[in-house]
Design a protein around this nucleic acid. Structure first.
Length: 577
RNA sequence: GCGCCCUUAGCUCAGCCGGAUAGAGCAUCGGACUUCUAAUCCGACGGUCGGGGGUUCGAAUCCCUCAGGGCGCGCCA
């Protein structure tokens, strides 16, 4: 364990138990970063009130400090009873060295491993695919990578919108324009245009409308010819999705596809079981679950409709079937739904219904990781100037174009420039999505996300590239560096201390499902490195051999942390920029 | 009516498991370039943390309330 906050928590807890008795060993020492020291412990104030003779908080703090005499650093009582803790340089160097020797850079593996089902991306083949899907894809993928790194068993579930009434008109439109033309259009990413054309026919042409409705019926009845057409449509669409995933460097594969259609065969039983157990009841001809606590506009219970009065199933049914499948068949301990926050109420009700049915036991959690809406620079829903939704590939192309322009005069050959432009452009978009908290709206702005300063992908990539540059310049392989690490300059100390916090951040990101915390950490790390870079020459002439060895080790460790962190976010890591 | 998100510096956002003087980037102003990659840095300026009440030794953070903005909510997904 290298994380200072955790080390100190344990150490101070022992001290206060020693001072006041074992019954207080459960008290959280409240170790927090401090502006007056490396860390501060805030426990004395609250603990003073719990103690029988209600001593002064400062005395409590002093009593704890007295039992930290052997601590490798300094402990001072300050203000109303704060304990200001400054770690010794040797302690920091020692733990940094320990972290450096660990291939995992101190990140522990969860034991026992949990099964984490992550539902993300889930583009809808029959609806406009908009930039909102970009965010759930990127955030979900980062969470999958983090949980995998933590040693959990991750089951990705791409809950494609691949079923439902719109497919009647989509299939008819496919027939009208011919399969080859339809496939070409869909693979080219013009699913929205395809959908709109079908929609237009549906609204304008009564014959088409009738055909579409009949097609829905034959599709749902499992008619072989119709299913074949459906597969033609879906396969082409999925090939387009895969192009986008490849471009984005997303880890989703066809094996992770678990679209709505997958649950078709379970829907009737889902309803029957819910009805038999009394969880679902008929209301106005529809089969509904009324989870307690949900009321509508007139204070009447709000239904979750699982079978429409016409006998059809909605997405609530699918979600309930999916939750049962994920718990029972996939053995999920945790299910993360990385989905837009407009579905908050829906998921609350689905989760509540699943609990009522006993399909979601207390031992498993279902969490809606709410994704906030993406806004344009004008603060309104992200659209093109003409009001169209923005095509994902166009968006990514523009990011790459801008990145390419930024490095145009750097003297790289074409292939290298292209590789860097892709890494920087895609990295900028992904990092921008990840660096703000997932549940808030966020403003999409190319200019901001592509700058080399601030909390951006390019800045993080650049910091990392500069470290590699040092190794190149020095003719040193980062893997061959051995240290030892010695703390001299303030910038070395600050960098080493910063690095020690990496494992805890990764764990926290997994627990709280908040990738933006990793971004913030990496930004702080890159900033600390930049200060080090400005102040501490490494392979320049005149640097003593031991200093050089120590700094090379710090560089190598920083590189590992930045590279690992960016990998966990799914942000590409170019060698040079 | 109900649910979710939001309201913190001119702009974009952190901080919100309560802790000392609320942070960062951009923008603005001033400074640093014969570079271990200056697209990278340093400094300055800049805030009634939407309003009010409560809990607390202590509130941007917890509770209540009001206001404003966004999104959603019985047979689309």
């Amino acid at each position: 364990m290298t994380d200072p906050q955790l080390v100190l928590t344990e150490r101070v807890r022992l001290a206060l138990a020693d001072a006041f008795g074992a019954e207080f060993a459960d008290a959280d020492p409240l170790i927090r970063p401090s502006q007056f020291a490396d860390f501060q412990a805030n426990v004395a104030m609250s603990l003073a009130r719990r103690l029988p003779d209600r001593p002064k908080p400062r005395d409590v703090a002093q009593a704890i400090a007295d039992r930290l005499g052997d601590f490798p650093g300094t402990v001072e009582v300050s203000g109303p009873g704060f304990l200001n803790i400054t770690l010794g340089d040797a302690w920091i160097a020692d733990h940094a060295a320990h972290m450096f020797d660990d291939p995992r850079a101190g990140v522990p593996t969860t034991a026992p491993a949990a099964t984490v089902v992550i539902d993300y991306s889930a583009p809808n083949a029959a609806k406009e695919m908009h930039v909102g899907h970009l965010r759930t894809t990127i955030v979900g993928d980062a969470l999958a990578r983090v949980h995998e790194h933590l040693g959990n068993r991750v089951v990705r579930q791409n809950h494609l919108g691949d079923w439902g009434t719109p497919f009647g008109m989509l299939i008819e439109h496919l027939l009208d324009i011919g399969e080859p033309a339809a496939v070409a259009q869909l693979e080219a990413g013009e699913g929205t245009e395809f959908y709109q054309a079908a929609r237009q026919m549906f609204e304008a042409d009564e014959t088409f409308k009738r055909r579409a409705r009949e097609r829905v019926t034959t599709l749902q009845s499992g008619d072989a010819d119709t299913l074949r057409l459906w597969h033609v449509f879906m396969n082409a669409t999925i090939r387009y999705f895969n192009k986008i995933y490849a471009m984005l460097g997303v880890t989703l594969t066809d094996a992770d596809i678990a679209g709505e259609s997958m649950y078709n065969d379970m829907l009737a039983k889902t309803c029957a079981d819910l009805e038999a157990s009394g969880v679902a009841v008929l209301s106005e001809g529809a089969l509904c679950v009324f989870p307690p606590g949900f009321t509508g506009s007139d204070d009447k219970p709000l239904p979750l409709i699982i079978r429409k009065s016409d006998g059809g199933y909605g997405y609530a049914t699918t979600d309930l079937a999916a939750i049962r499948y994920r718990v029972h068949d996939l053995k999920a301990d945790r299910i993360l739904y990385v989905v837009g926050n407009d579905q908050a109420l829906h998921f609350q009700m689905v989760f509540a219904a699943a609990r009522m049915a006993g399909w979601l036991p207390d031992s498993a959690s279902a969490e809606h990781i709410q994704i906030g809406m993406m806004l344009g620079k004008d603060g309104r829903r992200f659209k093109t100037r003409s009001g169209e939704s923005v095509k994902l590939s166009d968006l990514l192309d523009e990011a790459i174009d801008r990145a390419r322009a930024a490095i145009a005069d750097r003297g790289y050959d074409d292939a290298t420039r292209e590789e860097i432009a892709r890494a920087v452009g895609i990295g900028a978009v992904k990092y921008a999505d990840l660096s703000v908290s997932h549940d808030s709206e966020y403003v999409f702005d190319f200019d901001r996300m592509l700058t080399l300063t601030g909390n951006t992908g390019p800045y993080m990539q650049y910091a990392q590239a500069r470290i590699r540059s040092i190794f190149r310049r020095g003719g040193v392989d980062p893997a061959s560096v051995t240290g030892p690490i010695v703390i001299g300059e303030a910038a070395e100390r600050a960098l080493a201390l910063q690095l020690l916090g990496f494992p805890a951040v990764v764990e926290r990101v997994g627990e709280a499902a908040e990738p933006h915390r990793l971004c913030a950490f990496l930004f702080d790390t890159a900033t600390a490195f930049t200060t080090f870079f400005e102040n501490c020459p490494v392979v320049k002439e005149g640097v003593p051999a031991d200093t050089r060895a120590s700094r090379l080790a710090l560089c190598a460790l920083t590189l590992r942390v930045l590279e690992t962190g960016l990998n966990l976010l799914g942000v590409p890591v170019p060698d040079r920029m």
